[in-house]
Design a binder for these strands. Sequence first.
DNA 1: GGCTTTTTCTAGACTTTGTCTAAAGTTCTT
DNA 2: AAGAACTTTAGACAAAGTCTAGAAAAAGCC
Lengths: 140, 140
Amino acid sequence: MSTENHQYRGQLIERLKAAGVTPTQQRVEIAAILFVRDQHMSADQVLALVNESSPRVSKATVYNTLGLFAKTGLVREVIVDPTKVFYDSNTTAHHHFYNADTGQLMDIDPAAVEIASLPTLPEGTVAEGVDVIIRIRQAH
Amino acid sequence: MSTENHQYRGQLIERLKAAGVTPTQQRVEIAAILFVRDQHMSADQVLALVNESSPRVSKATVYNTLGLFAKTGLVREVIVDPTKVFYDSNTTAHHHFYNADTGQLMDIDPAAVEIASLPTLPEGTVAEGVDVIIRIRQAH
DNA sequence: GGCTTTTTCTAGACTTTGTCTAAAGTTCTT
DNA sequence: AAGAACTTTAGACAAAGTCTAGAAAAAGCC
């Protein structure tokens, strides 16, 4: 393994630990794929990519790990497509364009959407987050 | 069938026709369930309800009909739960609370959410709609 | 280091939502 | 009434995701 890769893995391990996640082989493998850049991936895509290189990771582990990453705030679940959930490696506050024609999910510049007012929540509930999805399609 | 029911069905038929949908037996049956009041239902729930009374409607028809109703603007698809899509019989502009703990979907008073600015769309695309979902959970 | 306990991983069966197919039934047109 | 176009149906199928029970790793302890 190259020095750069080695260092990258070290950073990943720290990141997982900081989130209170034990950095196992498989979790680091998955994190390495997710966290190279800000991106949106489905479990399926992660599974395919992680198994391109040698150390195989099972389907169950990919699902468990993505669920764990979501629960600990390492990634954000984005629910826009009825057939699959996307995992967003950008956890800063932002919203999404979703192109139903292409299936593509894109970040919206946080400065470009401004929500002026929010409603009071129902009794006995607390807010988890606000998702804004702008559904678009190809012109003609 | 009672007079009220008979009149209700007449109204439904007009509503379907106005949307350019041929009012078949099964479609009216499904519309009768959806449009009694503003509500959110999954395909599963519609299927169960429609088959409580005599004229049975098949699973395929329920899915086809809900898809057709969505396409023609009679209902609105709401995608908040990764496992199923909800069909909203209230098609006026409004947003939703989604309680992940209870699975409940609730309307937000349109006046309570104000979006001050929207981003410019990606090249070659047109907007289909803006969904705002406030994810909540039970306090403690 | 060894030994035990706890956590994690795995293959593969299973579940659920939704789609597809091909045949049968309706409806519309003429 | 005959033909064309559309709709419905049962049941097979597909895809995403969950569950289970045993194997493997990791952590805790003497």
